[in-house]
């Protein structure tokens, strides 16, 4: 448990410190981290820390787009542009196919969720109908 906390905390620190830094500066920061860890005899954790930091960065930078089935690239492109515009520039789109959403799409980042799927629409209809009865 404690090791996990150490890893996640250092990973977060790394992400914060390396934000907007040049490649050289990033390298230096990682080296300093390695020294700090060596001093505490914890340098074996470095790979795991880096891996976790990568995961955080990736999460922060991506928009997951879920579609019910394959669509033509033009539609996907347009959808992607609109999402990047509203959910944050500089992010990358990662597409997935999941037919359980029936139709429409679901777009998700670390902080936001837009659920425009047919499944959600149908669920809402169901809930409202039950209330009316």
């Amino acid at each position: 448990m404690k090791t996990k906390t150490t890893i996640t905390t250092w990973a977060r620190v790394l992400v914060l410190l390396t934000k907007g830094q040049s490649e050289n500066a990033k390298k230096n920061i990682i080296l300093r981290l390695q020294e700090q860890l060596k001093r505490k005899k914890k340098d074996y954790l470095l790979p795991k820390i880096l891996e976790t930091a990568e995961k955080y960065l990736a999460q922060a930078e991506k928009i997951t787009l879920v579609l019910a089935r394959e669509t033509d690239s033009a539609t996907k492109e347009m959808l992607g542009q609109k999402l990047i515009a509203s959910l944050g520039k500089g992010k990358k789109i990662e597409s997935k196919i999941d037919d359980s959403i029936i139709g429409g799409f679901v777009a998700r980042t670390e902080d936001y969720l837009i659920d425009a799927s047919v499944k959600k629409y149908l669920n809402q209809l169901k809930r409202i109908s039950l209330e009316e009865i």
Binding site: E110, D111, Y112, L113, I114, D115, K120, Y121, L125, I128
Partner: peptide, 29 residues
């Protein structure tokens, strides 16, 4: 009545569950 109800997709602010147990949950976001 159904027509009067608005069913629009909106943007929800969310978080993700990282720990859960004993009916207490820790989420980030």
């Amino acid at each position: 009545q159904l027509e009067e109800k608005e069913i629009e997709p909106k943007m929800d602010e969310i978080g993700t569950v990282i720990e859960s147990g004993d009916n207490v949950v820790k989420a980030n976001g």
